[in-house]
Simulated scan of single mutants.
Amino acid sequence: MLTVRDLPTPEVLRRFAQRYPDADISGVSTFLTLLRTATELSQMLDAFLARHGLLQGRWWVLILLFREETLESSPSVLADKAGVTRATMTGLLDGLERDGLVQRVYDAADRRRITIRLLPAGQAVLDAVMPDYYRRVRTLMTGLNEDERVLLKSMLGTLRGAADAFA
């Protein structure tokens, strides 16, 4: 993924706005800063998880299974909750199963129906990663007080609600 590290100055944005009158300089600057920050945070999370032998997709699947009271879910539900295609989920599950972190459980009456179960080894991976993850998130978020956190979540929700502008 390309990350633009050199964000445009207000002067550069003004030049763009002269050529492209629909440009909202403040909006573009804010959007690019948000995009850059989100990309950098995602890259840092990737690097953190890699030190634990994980990729983000696999980590999320383990978390989604742990969130279930039974520690089980169907591949299609996992795909929907993770926001990936079923084919992508199949690949993630293949790797997790190969590593002994999850198990496919086939329905005795209909072998086409599959449930994915979090295994103790998968739980152990989460147990190793999550305390460090939560410490790092706490450190990241210490610069924002509770009111600022609520405001940030609200503002991000507003943006998410308008994200279909790129659809």
Rank of each mutant, 00 (worst) to 15 (best):
A38E: 10
D107M: 07
T85C: 02
V28S: 01
Q123C: 10
Y20S: 13
P10D: 11
L96Y: 03
V125I: 12
A50G: 06
A128N: 09
V150P: 03
G95N: 13
F166P: 01
T85L: 01
T30M: 00
A121E: 14
P8V: 01
A23C: 13
G83V: 09
L71H: 12
A47P: 00
L71N: 05
D107G: 11
D99N: 08
D46Y: 09
V102G: 04
T85A: 01
L41Q: 08
M155R: 14
A87M: 10
A23S: 03
D46P: 03
L64C: 06
F48S: 14
M89T: 03
P120L: 05
S42D: 12
T39E: 09
T39C: 07
W59I: 07
P10F: 02
P21L: 02
V84R: 00
L55A: 15
A47E: 11
H52T: 02
D132M: 04
G27T: 02
T158H: 03
W59E: 09
R113H: 09
D6M: 11
D99T: 01
R104D: 07
F16Y: 09
A124C: 04
A167K: 10
V105G: 03
S26I: 04
L144Q: 04
L54I: 01
R160F: 05
D127K: 12
G143D: 08
G83Q: 01
S76A: 13
R135A: 07
P75V: 03
L35P: 00
E146R: 15
T33H: 12
T3N: 13
S74L: 05
W59C: 12
A47G: 11
V84K: 02
M44T: 12
E11I: 04
L101C: 07
T37V: 13
D110V: 08
A82H: 05
F66N: 14
L54S: 13
L45C: 02
D24W: 00
Y20C: 10
G95C: 02
Y106F: 07
L126N: 07
L159K: 03
K153G: 11
L45M: 11
G161E: 02
A109P: 03
R135W: 06
G100K: 04
V137W: 06
R98S: 06
I25E: 03
A50E: 15
A108M: 12
V105Y: 00
V129I: 11
D132Q: 06
M130S: 04
T142F: 10
D132W: 05
L156Y: 10
Q18T: 14
V105K: 06
E72T: 11
M89C: 06
D6K: 13
W60F: 15
T115W: 12
L151R: 11
T33K: 10
D164W: 01
R136A: 10
A50W: 05
R98L: 05
T139L: 08
L65V: 07
R138I: 14
E72F: 06
